[in-house]
């Protein structure tokens, strides 16, 4: 019967060895811990950031369980495009664009997961899903934010914040060349990067470990690799559109 819907199967044929998963999640947790110690963790988020995160998580939930869930019924099950993925990615990109602090990805995924459990799933399979969603989707978004610095999605690009001494000093030195790029290009490129990063967890971690671990799902490595490659073209398009939508919304909010 297992615990809370978790069968705990570790020796399914083809399943990713649990040691590798533990190593990955362990590294993710260490990253989160070190980031927390260095930056002050949750404390560094302002009240406004926490509200943006809440609003973004609410949109992701409304899309996942209501709007996207019904629109998705018109599109047959396919490995190339996912309605749920689209809405969740765009909602989280918007939150990342508004907050632009490392950790926002993980915190937003935690809230999204908690709200999903409260209004629909009933905490089935937890705490596996908290770890999975935060340390895959959330962490990958945070890595891009860490690399991009405060100029995520070109929000502080010279075109937008022309020649203010304060903003120039806020830009990390290694990214000077990138910031000369028009903000729209940078938004699209970083959206694409996050989109591609987000393609990996579902087939690799879910198909290769979580699914057999929770309920004995069959691991098919041909399918896992095909699903990852097949999803990349739509991830590129959705990521680029998501980045541009984010830039527009951030502008409309007055940042």
């Amino acid at each position: 019967m297992g615990f809370n819907g978790i069968s705990g199967i570790l020796n399914s044929p083809g399943e990713i060895p649990w040691e590798i998963v533990v190593l990955f999640f362990g590294a993710g947790l260490i990253f989160a811990f070190l980031w927390g110690r260095k930056s002050g963790g949750l404390a560094k988020f302002t009240t406004l950031d926490l509200i943006y995160i809440g609003i973004g998580a609410a949109f992701a939930v409304v899309w996942e369980f209501y709007i996207g869930a019904f629109l998705g019924k018109f599109i047959p099950s396919n490995p190339f495009f996912g309605i749920g993925y689209t809405g969740r990615l765009i909602a989280l990109l918007i939150v990342a664009g508004l907050v632009r602090k490392v950790g926002v990805g993980m915190v937003a995924m935690f809230i999204f997961n908690l709200l999903s459990d409260l209004i629909s799933y009933g905490f089935s399979g937890e705490p596996m899903y908290f770890m999975y969603e935060m340390l895959t989707y959330g962490l990958m978004m945070d890595i891009v934010i860490a690399a991009a610095g405060p100029n995520l999605f070109g929000i502080k690009s010279p075109e937008r914040r022309r020649n203010t001494e304060k903003d120039r000093s806020a830009t990390p030195r290694g990214f000077e060349r990138i910031t000369k790029m028009p903000a729209e290009y940078l938004a699209a490129i970083e959206g694409i990067l996050i989109g591609i990063f987000w393609v990996v967890p579902e087939p690799l971690f879910y198909g290769g470990f979580i699914s057999p671990f929770l309920y004995g799902g069959v691991v098919d490595w041909g399918k896992i690799l095909f699903d990852m490659v097949a999803f990349i073209p739509s991830a590129i398009i959705i990521g680029a559109i998501g980045g541009l939508i984010t830039l527009r919304i951030v502008k409309a909010v007055g940042q």
Binding site: I53, G54, I55, F110
Partner: peptide, 14 residues
């Protein structure tokens, strides 16, 4: 509290 505050905002936003 920070996380529950975000959650409450999300619950009211839905």
């Amino acid at each position: 509290t920070s996380l529950t505050f975000s959650l409450v905002v999300a619950m009211r936003t839905v």
